[in-house]
Amino acid sequence: MKSTFMLPKTRKGWISLALIVFVIVLGSWPVIPFFNKETIVFGMPMLMVWSIVIIVITTSTLWFINKIGGVK
């Protein structure tokens, strides 16, 4: 028996996987330092605004992947 790991089989599948990883990265170590500032934007701390942006981007990404049928 092969010890293959089940990876996406289509281009849409790979794009969807890349988008999900991208969304997770937005709230993690490589990106967070850029928003870890005392600056106030729209009346809120920058990190609070970024957390709300992550919510919007995440929902939009999931909606987009549903639309293209990237994840069955």
Binding site: I20, I24, S51, L62
Partner: peptide, 20 residues
């Protein structure tokens, strides 16, 4: 202070897990 926001982010990502 703002460390409280980690809850917002992880709950958002738990939505991705539920979706996937």
């Amino acid at each position: 202070g703002v460390p409280a926001l980690y809850v917002v982010v992880y709950l958002t990502y738990m939505g991705v897990i539920a979706w996937y």
